[in-house]
Amino acid sequence: MLAAAADGKPDAVREALADGADIEARDDRGRTPLLLAATGDHDVAARILVEAGADPDAQDDQEDSAWLVTGVTGSVKMARVLIPAEPDYTLENRYGGTSLIPAGEHGHADYVREVLKSTDMDVDHVNDLGWTALLEAVILGDGGADHQEVVELLLDGGADPKLADRDGVTPLQHAQDKGQDEIVELLRAAGA
């Protein structure tokens, strides 16, 4: 089951389920078949597992879950597979963040758009570093078109442009320090 899910082999996943394989089996890192399928962006295998009742919130030894991994990969198709499984959108990764925060870091605009449209995720969730998705998009982003779009989506989705990091530095100040002129303008237009 684990190998079939990791390799994205839907027929092998179906066969393993039919043979009574444990849908919540764990590998040596604590990853379930659904987490392995999500990590590899194997949406068909993941759909089979979701329909069979796989837990989208099962976390591995690094505190990743199938849902949390979608924020890193930015996979809209996988997010759409997992949403019907009703994942816990408040579940946190090892950095105390929800899936929106790594999506902001990586500039996954399409993913951010989908999550803001299809879930009730807290757009201003603060991780253990003291950062929101907006702060992460500015601090760890390159200021390019993808990160600009993420910033715009987050602001349109209700992100507080004045919410500072734990040192009191606002997204606007970070953007100015990094020379991200387009993001500076977006933040100013949002009342930062």
Rank of each mutant, 00 (worst) to 15 (best):
R188G: 10
Q176D: 12
G141L: 05
G157C: 09
L49P: 03
D156F: 08
L163K: 13
E92P: 02
M78V: 08
D110A: 14
D160L: 06
T119D: 04
D110K: 15
Q62F: 11
L163S: 00
A6C: 07
V138C: 01
G104Y: 02
L134V: 10
V169Y: 04
L34R: 09
Y95D: 13
I183V: 15
G30I: 09
W131M: 11
L186N: 04
H147Q: 12
T39P: 05
M78D: 03
R94Q: 13
D28W: 03
D7Y: 12
A46C: 06
Q62A: 14
I23N: 04
A192D: 09
L172V: 07
D146V: 01
A175K: 14
L91Q: 14
E51G: 11
D167H: 12
A21T: 02
H174G: 01
Q176L: 12
L116W: 01
D28Y: 02
L153F: 10
P84S: 07
H125V: 12
A25K: 10
E15T: 13
D27F: 04
D128T: 01
A175P: 09
V150L: 06
G104K: 00
P161W: 09
A175G: 10
G71E: 01
A25D: 05
R80S: 12
S75W: 00
E182S: 13
L186C: 10
L91F: 01
V169I: 15
A45S: 15
H125W: 10
H42K: 07
T90A: 15
T32I: 09
